[in-house]
Amino acid sequence: MAKIVTMHERDIEKTSRIQTVRSILGTIMKYAFLLLVAVAVLFPFYWMINSSLKTLAEYKRTVPTFWPEQVMWTNYLAVFESGELGELFGYTLQIGLISTVASLVLTILTAFVFARLEFKGKNVLFAGLLATMMIPGELFTISNYTTVTQLGMITNDSVLIVPFLVSVFYVYLLRQNFMQIPNELYLAAKVDGTSDLKYLWKVMIPLALPTIISITILKMMGAWNSYIWPQLVEPQLGKSLITNGLLRMGFQDASGQTDFPKQMAAVALVSAPLFAVFIFFRKYIMKGVSRSGIKG
């Protein structure tokens, strides 16, 4: 028996076919858009690597090459020749490590006090500290510059570390995390005679480890990327961090022209540790950033 197809059923079939075509077209357009954005995002990185591997003559060609004809790995060695870049790397790493470790100790202790211990005026004090987060950083920079000058700190390494040891924001982030740990655990530990510091070390830090890792990474990246403060204190300190050094070095060839391939090689070297950290700690970074909204 032949199947009777009503007009209504035919209409439904037709509409659903139109919808399928539409959704396929929509999907193609979506992917085209997303891939185009991905290309735009990645292009500067590709161009950095492409340029860093060229000879200066090839770089300056009117018709650019999209991959170097002669791959100059030696550009990456040449930027270390003067010794300046290596020194900058070492010094920045040293400052970054010291500030991160010291800052972690202080942040953890402070967050612990605000999360667990009770004393008069605690909430008022904490609210007051939170209020300072509204103020733009530039305002602090001016006065801190006069303070470090007056204290004589400006001529030694501590000037790059001490002013930034305690960040209210990181204290806040960690305190919120500590607060989620049930109070019963703390009271049980007290009954067992566990000291505060031991409890902090054995229970709270392991439980809040993801936040602590986020803070560590953001702090390290902050040191690596900081520019304004090191630039301000550089004349008196006589040393600078990697970002300032990169800008100052200039990378000129014998005739005084900018040697772009070498400059791009140095930029790639400065960017490499950031990418390495990102690849290994992607989750922590993205989580930390989504809660902070503060760059580096």
């Binding site: 997303l34 954005v37 991905a38 995002v41 990645l42 500067p44 990185f45 161009w47 950095m48 340029s51 990246m221 690596w224 990327n225 520019y227 970002t243 990169l246 800008l247 772009f260 400059q263 791009m264 930029v267 400065v270 960017s271 950031l274 990418f275 950290v277 990102f278 992607r282 970074i285 993205m286 950033v289 760059k295």
Partner: peptide, 26 residues
């Protein structure tokens, strides 16, 4: 994959990558 790619500019040094953009427009 795309989400990771889109996040990449965040983990860069804005002065260093500024030099790359500068070279691209130069």
């Amino acid at each position: 994959v795309l989400q990771t790619i889109y996040f990449l500019p965040y983990v860069t040094n804005s002065i260093a990558i500024g030099l790359v953009f500068s070279a691209m427009f130069n």
